[in-house]
């Protein structure tokens, strides 16, 4: 009988067997990588905005409080993006000729809102509420990255469910004094050259990246806050909290 296959075909046979065993694992790894990649999550990607608004300019250099623009963040679900009037409270006086501000002036004149592209969004089936998180002393940067350093706003965190739960299961790792939420931006401003000299290590980390792993003492304080707020840890990760 003539040979059907070249002896080299043996390699193929072995390879196909190995692939059969490792293939599912490989697929899993690829899927894992792709779903977490910024290509999918859009973390760090700026959106096409009508006006190149810079947080770095207005927050870090001018020292404007977040609440001046995101006026509802403390007491409503949505932080709200400021209306044109808020911009015009300054820009009717300063930089009135800047071409970059033309859309703002147009919007003010024609009484039509600016169409900002939203970068942070959770799906419709998720209920999120800013006010409770601010009231529990969570700094904006924990969830949005260091906004005060952004030239153009981009997403700081992927808002995966695992990420929400990571905090909801262990809130003591994050909760803090509600009075500090906005004051640390101010404190940061006073630091020399963005070195944030007189900030606590935790505050410096939060300002720089939003990421901080608490030391045992900080954790103890966090636990005290959890107690003080009366947070029911057992319930906080229940499905109905976020999927209503």
């Amino acid at each position: 009988m003539a040979q059907i296959f070249h002896p080299r075909a043996n390699i193929l046979a072995k390879f196909s067997l190995i692939l059969l065993a490792t293939g599912p694992l490989l697929l899993l790894l690829i899927g894992t990588g792709v779903s977490r990649a910024s290509y999918n999550t859009k973390v760090g990607m700026v959106a096409d905005q009508p006006v190149p608004f810079s947080h770095e300019h207005h927050v870090s250099e001018l020292g404007i409080d977040c609440r001046y623009c995101h006026s509802n963040v403390e007491n409503s679900a949505h932080a709200t993006v400021p209306p044109t009037e808020t911009c015009m409270s300054c820009h009717s006086q300063i930089w009135t000729n800047s071409p970059l501000l033309e859309p703002v002036r147009q919007s003010y004149k024609t009484n039509t809102p600016i169409k900002w592209a939203q970068v942070n969004k959770v799906p419709e089936f998720v209920y999120f509420n800013h006010s409770i998180h601010i009231k529990r002393g969570l700094n904006c940067n924990i969830c949005h990255g260091s906004v005060q350093q952004m030239q153009l706003a981009s997403k700081g965190k992927a808002f995966f469910m695992v990420w929400c739960l990571n905090c909801h299961r262990n809130p003591e790792k994050f909760v803090n004094d509600p009075d500090k939420v906005f004051s640390i931006y101010e404190k940061g401003l006073k630091g020399t050259d963005h070195e944030y000299a007189d900030l606590l290590p935790e505050e410096r980390d939060i300002l720089n990246s939003g990421e901080h792993t608490r030391t045992p003492e900080e954790l103890a304080k966090g636990e005290a806050w959890v107690k003080k707020f009366g947070i029911k840890k057992k319930q906080l990760a229940d499905c109905w909290i976020c999927h209503r």
Partner: peptide, 8 residues
């Protein structure tokens, strides 16, 4: 059960 972004 696979490691997923839903923590589930």
């Amino acid at each position: 059960p696979y490691p997923n972004v839903l923590a589930m």
